[in-house]
Design a protein around this nucleic acid. Structure first.
Lengths: 168, 168
DNA sequence: TGACATTAGTTGCGAGTGTAACTATTTCTT
DNA sequence: AAGAAATAGTTACACTCGCAACTAATGTCA
């Protein structure tokens, strides 16, 4: 099924040259992220009744206090429609409140209500514990490498996407 | 510690860990996987006109030749409805063909058509090149660590999900 | 000032997804 | 052998998402 000519190997990046899905990094990353999200969603959803976008909004406001929807989106890397819907849902549930900005009436300043703050205070330790249990299987060296690797890959991928845009 | 007040939420020690979204592994993994998928989708979609699930089916059949939908799902870690829809779409486009299995009429044996094989042969090198360009920013040591880290994290996450199921 | 461009945020819409229910077939149990 | 359980695969449904279009407000510039 696969070509076995020696001069092909040089041009292929995987160790043995053929495309194996389970060794293909984009696939591996996707499977891992999905798996981790599913596990974590059990805490988000079943224990606190919120979605992942809502969780990101809560985590961002919990960390920074008062922000606009745009700032939340930038900080948590979410599309503005995702932020808009998560904010609307949290507000409907009384976990977040908007305050008009008199200096610029296009935007609204958002912050957690007392109820939203309670959720954040309860959820944050659980989330940190989950992350801790996740990384506890890694060696000290691997654990330190991981943060660096993730940042490098994300930046590289962004650059590649730009390159593909220009040529495609 | 000596001046800590009971309501001082911003001064948790680094050891306990303040929850910072951009340092939270599940978030980082999700952002990275999304970014990589978006980049790679430019090759899948714009250059060859197929979706990610379709790409996974093509890659699996390209590697193994003839399989059932269930086997494809197991190998590529896709839900059976995702496989079903991707297979139906590929078949409609003449890129895949089904053959009834006379030994078990519930299942069908699937394989790429000549046209599907052409896509695989063209796409696989591009995909490998993309992965190569992605990992080229990593040091040799980090690159080797990455595969190991991903496998360990995925297994750990699966175990944690089971634990959460039982307790939650 | 007045016309045009830009920005924050919302919403309609189409595409994709997982759950649950369903069909058709095979296997198990007695 | 007959009914029950299990299995491969499909489909209806509800939900999520991003794009594009939209509203409302602000900024730009002649």
């Amino acid at each position: 099924m696969s070509t076995e000519r020696h001069d092909d190997k040089r041009r292929r990046s995987a160790a043995n040259g053929t495309l194996e899905l389970e060794r293909f990094l984009p696939y591996q990353l996707n499977v891992l992220a999905e798996q981790v999200s599913r596990s974590l969603s059990k805490i988000y959803g079943e224990r606190y009744g919120i979605s992942i976008p809502e969780w990101r909004v809560i985590a961002t406001l919990g960390q920074y206090g008062r922000m606009t929807a745009k700032e939340i989106g930038l900080h948590s890397r979410m599309h503005k429609t995702k932020v808009s819907r998560a904010v609307a849902s949290l507000q409907a549930d009384g976990r977040l409140e908007r305050k008009a900005n008199s200096d610029d009436k296009r935007e609204a300043l958002l912050r957690l209500t007392r109820q939203g703050r309670l959720i954040y205070d309860a959820l944050a330790p659980d989330a940190l514990a989950f992350a801790g249990e996740l990384t506890s299987v890694l060696s000290q060296a691997d654990s330190e490498a991981l943060g660096r690797i993730i940042d490098q890959l994300r930046e590289r991928s962004e650059d590649l996407a730009l390159g593909l845009d220009r040529s495609g």
